[in-house]
């Protein structure tokens, strides 16, 4: 069980680092009035929901 969660958390850390760099690129090179900020918010919102659901499912099962 601990191994399973540690693998998942390791994956989440890598996933978050890559997502952070993508968001940073968009914030850096996006133009004023662009959809970059909205898209980044939407991405992290959807991902957050998936992560929460995954944790709940993995704990319950």
């Amino acid at each position: 069980m601990i191994y399973l969660f540690s693998i998942y958390f390791l994956f989440l850390i890598v996933w978050f680092i890559i997502s952070y760099f993508v968001a940073k690129q968009l914030m850096m090179y996006g133009f004023v009035g662009d959809a970059t900020k909205t898209m980044t918010k939407f991405y992290f919102f959807i991902s957050g929901i998936i992560i929460v659901i995954s944790l709940i499912v993995l704990i319950i099962i």
């Binding site: 399973l4 994956f11 968009l26 996006g30 898209m39 991405y43 998936i50 992560i51 995954s54």
Partner: peptide, 30 residues
Amino acid sequence: SPGRIFWLIVFMLFLSLILFLYLSWMEYYL
């Protein structure tokens, strides 16, 4: 339990897919 392994892989695939889409959109948009 096998159910846990199954759902873990499914969620990992989903997160990877969303990340790939986000990355592709960034490359397209910039």
